[in-house]
C-alpha cells in the first residue's frame, strides 16, 4: 500500500514547520509537501512597479528529536515543495512554465471563477486543482470539465484544517466537498491538511474516516490520503519529462539505491570477484 501523504502544509517559519513535521511523522505521514502560496501570477508590471517575487523552496531541517523517531521506526520521510497560485483571471498563466515556478515539485492552482476553472481543467499543466471551500463557491462545478481534468490525471484537493478552526468554515467545507465528490464520483480526490499549526493536523486513519463524511466511499477515502497522493507525485514527475514513456538518466547521476541496475546489465566476466565465488560450486556452474 502506498504510504500516507499530506500534500499541503502551509509554509510558515522554520520552527513551526519543524513542530508540524514532528507531529506529522509521529502520526504516520511519509510524504510531506510544504506549500508556498502565490496570490498573483503577474510578472513585471509597467515601469516602476515591483515584480512579484517567488521565493525558492527551502528544505525543512528536522530536529534531533524527530530524527530519533525515524531511527526507531526505520521509515523514510520525503519532503516535497509545492506552489499554489491563485487564478483570478485567465491571463498571465504563461508564468506557470517559467523556470522559477517549475523549480517546485508540485504545482497547484486555485481558480476563483468559472473561466479560470475551465482553463485549469482543460489546458493548464498543473497537478492539483484547489477550490476555496471555506466560502460558498461562486460557480457550479460542471461534470464535463471535471471529467476532462480527471482524464488528464489532475486531482482535486479538499483541505480539512479550516474545518477544524471554525464552525462556519466547517459547514461550507462539508457542503462543498459533498458537491465536489458527487460530481467527480469520488475519483481523483485528495484530502490534505493545509495546516498552519501542529494542533490542526489529524492522523491518516482519522482522515480516511473523515472522507466518509465528505461523501467518499471507504476505499476511496483511504486512497485520498495514500494512493491518489502518490498518483499526484507521479503526475508531477511525468509533467517535467514532457510527453514520454521512457526517461533517460546518465549512469553517473544514478542514485546509490539504483546502482544494481548497472551491475545487472554488465556481462558476468566484468563483475568483480563475486562471479568466481558463484562458479566454484559445480552445481551452480550450469546456471551461470
Amino acid at each position: 500500500m502506498a504510504a500516507f501523504a499530506d500534500l499541503h502544509v502551509a509554509s510558515t517559519d522554520q520552527q513551526v514547520l519543524q513542530d508540524v513535521f514532528q507531529t506529522a511523522i509521529k502520526l504516520g505521514f511519509d510524504w510531506l509537501a510544504v506549500n508556498t502560496f502565490l496570490t498573483d501570477l503577474k510578472g513585471k508590471g509597467k515601469k516602476g512597479q515591483q515584480q512579484n517575487q517567488i521565493c525558492q523552496p527551502e528544505p525543512v531541517e528536522l530536529t534531533d528529536q524527530t530524527r530519533q523517531l525515524l531511527k526507531v521506526e526505520g521509515r523514510k520521510v520525503r519532503q516535497i515543495s509545492r506552489l499554489t497560485a491563485l487564478l483570478d483571471d485567465t491571463t498571465n498563466t504563461h508564468k506557470l512554465v517559467s523556470p522559477e515556478v517549475q523549480a517546485f515539485d508540485l504545482l497547484a492552482v486555485q481558480p476563483t471563477n468559472e473561466a479560470a476553472f475551465k482553463l485549469a481543467c482543460c489546458t493548464l499543466e498543473v497537478d492539483i486543482i484547489v477550490l476555496n471551500m471555506t466560502e460558498k463557491l461562486s460557480f457550479y462545478i460542471k461534470r464535463p470539465l471535471v471529467n476532462l481534468a480527471i482524464e488528464r490525471g489532475m486531482h482535486f484537493e479538499i483541505l480539512y484544517s479550516p474545518a477544524v478552526r471554525d464552525s462556519t468554515f466547517r459547514q461550507n467545507t462539508i457542503s462543498n466537498a459533498l458537491q465536489l465528490t458527487s460530481v467527480c464520483k469520488g475519483k481523483n480526490v485528495i484530502v490534505s491538511s493545509g495546516c498552519e499549526k501542529a494542533i490542526e493536523l489529524r492522523g491518516p486513519y482519522d482522515l480516511s474516516n473523515l472522507g466518509l463524511l465528505f461523501g467518499l466511499s471507504s476505499p476511496q477515502s483511504k486512497n485520498a490520503v495514500s494512493k491518489n497522493c502518490r498518483a499526484v507525485l507521479k503526475h508531477a514527475e511525468a509533467r517535467k519529462m514532457m510527453k514520454s514513456v521512457v526517461g533517460v538518466v546518465k549512469s553517473s547521476q544514478l542514485s546509490p539505491g539504483d546502482q544494481w541496475i548497472l551491475d545487472s546489465k554488465r556481462p558476468l566476466s566484468a563483475l568483480p570477484q563475486t562471479t568466481q565465488e558463484i562458479e566454484q560450486p559445480p552445481a551452480k556452474k550450469g546456471k551461470t
Binding site: Y160, V164, D206, L210, L213
Partner: peptide, 8 residues
Amino acid sequence: WGALTLFG
C-alpha cells in the same frame, strides 16, 4: 469518529 476529528 468524524466529530472527534473535526473537534478543534
